[in-house]
Design a protein around this nucleic acid. Structure first.
Lengths: 212, 212
DNA sequence: GTGCGATGTATCGGTCCGATACATCGCGGT
DNA sequence: ACCGCGATGTATCGGACCGATACATCGCAC
């Protein structure tokens, strides 16, 4: 998952670790707290070893100002390679069942702007099915096994069931939107009608590996 | 987290691994998919090494039927020890900040019936604060950084924000209920008024380490 | 009689987290 | 003038947990 997210983010701009973490946190804030350096740096190492990103020490200010004095440990800037872009495309194309769990789905969704419509649809439907299964499981427990469980556990299940139902509805909306061929413009909330064309017509895909 | 959940469950009855997993899945179904044997068995080993549970091969049917023939690898039944119960109580009492993340909170909540009211309140309020912080973070992103992000990422944030607001409301309700001193009886859903006193007056705590 | 899904125990490699360490920079306070 | 302190920045280590896999038994349907 981290690998996927990093490759996705680095396609927007080269970054160093700290920045990467901040962007990741902003982009994925809805689904996970904040990724740890204990995962980030080893993963960067791994990606570099695989040739999907390159690592370059930041230029020390035109090599003139601030000489070797104190030997400033410069920031390390990571850049995605052509192979990295291919890898990212491949990860999207695979998009198997592991993509449908909470984190996996969230991360993939966050990069839907770089995903072709067919795959978007496939992922949304896979996720929906998974949530529907979870929902049925919760209904079973609340129905059949209710008297075996204490009031708090039951309340937890109810809350979970609620969340499932809500997410299914959300996914239905997104799927319908996707089928109608347009971006997830949400009519409920503000900016009704205004401001130019639209924000980010989400790059309707099939683009693999464009020029550097 | 697993350690906590296992100690909690084994206080209801001794169990073998497979059963433990099933019960765990039923009890925690709302918050996590299904715990893996790759975590379960090593954890059981660890708990046994610490002396918090004991491991006993199931009696092979009064030692008479089914002799050593085929050397049936019997099920291994785990039983919690007095030290294990103490450990569980201690884990509840600690209930630090790590208790407020998604999984940690969920697992603790599932065992609220074995938690004293003061700690319940503390956990609920800690969780609320944490969710409020996440909510503020999402609002910030949706407000200030909106134009930097694509439509899909924004939609994800909106959905996350929605979930945060909903959970805060849920927690408020639970906290109010808790302050008023009663179980999380939910008036919205079925069984309004009926059926004896109430289900499971949730063991109002301060009980540490009762007799074996 | 045989295959197949549920029950049941167990390991291995790999991902990710939390704690920790350490260094630099710019800012406000005293 | 100095100091601390929070933000920036890179990095490691032990441990928790997962997913895949392996293997064995049981009962039942075909």
């Amino acid at each position: 998952m981290l690998e996927f997210a990093i490759l996705g983010l680095l396609q927007e701009a080269p970054m160093h670790g700290y920045e990467l973490r901040k962007e990741l946190t902003a982009k994925l804030g809805a689904i996970r707290a904040a990724i740890s350096y204990g995962s980030l740096y080893p993963t960067l190492r791994r990606l570099q070893a695989a040739g999907w990103i390159t690592e370059a020490a930041e230029a020390p200010a035109t090599a003139e100002e601030v000489p070797a004095l104190t030997s400033r440990r410069g920031r390390v800037v990571y850049t995605i390679t052509a192979e990295g872009k291919e890898r990212f495309a491949q990860l999207i194309a695979q998009a198997g069942p592991e993509t449908y769990d909470d984190t996996g789905f969230g991360v993939h969704f966050a990069f839907f702007a770089r995903t072709d419509q067919a795959t978007r649809l496939r992922i949304l439907e896979g996720r929906r099915r998974k949530i529907e299964e979870r929902r049925e499981g919760l209904r079973d427990v609340l129905g059949r096994a209710a008297e075996r469980l204490d009031a708090y556990t039951l309340e937890l299940q109810r809350h979970g069931l609620d969340a499932c139902e809500r997410e299914v509805r959300w996914l239905e909306e997104l799927i319908a939107n996707e089928r109608s061929g347009r971006a997830p413009a949400d009519p409920r909330r503000g900016t009704a009608g205004g401001r130019g064309d639209n924000d980010s017509p989400p790059t309707p895909g099939t683009s693999r590996t464009e020029r550097p």
